[in-house]
Simulated assay, not measured.
Amino acid sequence: MKNIFSTILLASGLMLSAQVGINTDSPKAQLDVNGDLNLRDKIAVLDATDNTLSIGNNDQLLVSQGEGYAPIWKTLRIPEYEPNKFYLIFNNSFSDKLGVDFSYSDEPNMSASKGATFTKGTSLGSLIGFKEITGLSQNISVFSTESKAYFQFETVVQANFGSNGTTDTSIDYACGIFVDDKLINLRQNNLKANSAQYPFMTHNQIGLIGNLSKGNHKVSVACSRVGSYGDAPNRRLSVGKNTNTNINNFIAQSSLKVEVYEVPQAFNTIIN
């Protein structure tokens, strides 16, 4: 009788340690169910933080942590979007303290008018004399075919003019916002000499482009010195940096704010 009881216990132990298959003759796990599974009560998993069993909360999902680790409960959220409405999808700001510097020799000899040269879609490489503000060159991502991208560029422009009290000495300059090295917005201005030495001014511009293709895009800003008058050929112009110590590079630094609004087409779920 003892031998029979021992045999039964041994067989039971082997069965408990073996893989069990339901509706399959070749189970691939300790419990392999080939078919529907109906649970009438609760599922509990080991919580490794305090070695207790956790049954999770309402609307949570079991998420695998990989082989050798117990799964954990996670909350699944789906953003609520109204159809045909734009939502802010991307929002970031960038800064640059290096800036760009121009002498008179950097000024291009423009054979065509500025109106003919500075046109939307012109490639950066074909605009002679433009220098890129490297810290503002960044990549953005677009996820929808319906989008609006806004760009706000701000910087300080300074020239090392002496104090002559006249407006005869001045420099024309231009700054452009580019997407994928194509011009989407340009502003031109003029910095004049005045009664104070080393004048500077704040430069602001806003650009907009609609319906960029899905994927990654490069955003960049570049500026050029386009005209000099009076004593200006002997003077230096800087954008996003100082020419003299009455300001410093912190004051003169450039910034670029980028906002991308989209009509969502893919409702990406968020797990936290």
Score class of each variant (00 low, 15 high):
residue 123 S to G: 09
residue 268 N to E: 10
residue 105 S to M: 02
residue 112 A to E: 00
residue 209 I to A: 02
residue 82 E to M: 10
residue 80 E to A: 11
residue 178 F to T: 08
residue 97 K to D: 11
residue 1 M to E: 12
residue 163 S to C: 04
residue 118 F to Y: 15
residue 91 N to L: 03
residue 32 D to H: 15
residue 125 G to A: 01
residue 190 N to C: 06
residue 219 V to E: 07
residue 86 F to G: 06
residue 24 T to I: 09
residue 192 K to R: 10
residue 180 D to E: 10
residue 88 L to N: 06
residue 68 G to N: 15
residue 87 Y to S: 04
residue 228 S to Y: 00
residue 231 D to A: 13
residue 57 N to D: 14
residue 158 Q to W: 05
residue 50 D to T: 12
residue 162 G to T: 13
residue 47 D to S: 12
residue 53 L to D: 05
residue 1 M to W: 13
residue 266 A to F: 12
residue 205 Q to K: 12
residue 25 D to M: 04
residue 53 L to G: 06
residue 146 E to Q: 14
residue 151 F to D: 04
residue 150 Y to S: 08
residue 82 E to T: 14
residue 177 I to M: 11
residue 123 S to V: 06
residue 255 S to L: 02
residue 239 V to W: 07
residue 10 L to N: 15
residue 239 V to F: 09
residue 233 P to D: 02
residue 261 Y to E: 03
residue 198 Y to N: 13
residue 7 T to R: 13
residue 149 A to Y: 07
residue 160 N to Y: 05
residue 151 F to N: 04
residue 128 I to E: 00
residue 182 K to A: 10
residue 99 G to K: 07
residue 261 Y to N: 10
residue 139 N to I: 03
residue 213 S to R: 06
residue 225 R to K: 12
residue 30 Q to T: 03
residue 113 S to I: 03
residue 216 N to I: 14
residue 92 N to V: 03
residue 211 N to F: 01
residue 77 R to Y: 14
residue 86 F to Y: 15
residue 94 F to H: 14
residue 14 L to I: 13
residue 238 S to D: 15
residue 209 I to N: 09
residue 246 N to C: 04
residue 36 D to F: 10
residue 5 F to C: 07
residue 135 G to W: 13
residue 71 P to W: 15
residue 227 G to A: 10
residue 192 K to Y: 15
residue 117 T to K: 00
residue 246 N to A: 03
residue 1 M to I: 12
residue 166 T to D: 13
residue 20 V to W: 14
residue 37 L to N: 08
residue 56 G to R: 08
residue 191 L to F: 06
residue 159 A to G: 08
residue 120 K to R: 07
residue 167 T to V: 09
residue 252 A to S: 03
residue 257 K to C: 00
residue 152 Q to K: 13
residue 161 F to E: 07
residue 81 Y to V: 09
residue 195 S to V: 07
residue 183 L to Q: 04
residue 164 N to V: 05
residue 57 N to F: 08
residue 116 A to V: 07
residue 152 Q to D: 14
residue 248 N to T: 12
residue 115 G to N: 00
residue 191 L to Y: 07
residue 35 G to A: 04
residue 224 S to G: 05
residue 232 A to V: 02
residue 75 T to M: 06
residue 109 N to G: 01
residue 195 S to C: 02
residue 94 F to D: 07
residue 144 S to W: 14
residue 156 V to R: 14
residue 16 L to S: 12
residue 96 D to Q: 14
residue 1 M to R: 11
residue 266 A to P: 00
residue 250 F to Q: 10
residue 32 D to A: 11
residue 53 L to S: 06
residue 270 I to R: 08
residue 208 L to F: 08
residue 149 A to P: 01
residue 187 R to M: 05
residue 21 G to C: 09
residue 161 F to C: 05
residue 89 I to L: 04
residue 130 F to I: 00
residue 55 I to R: 09
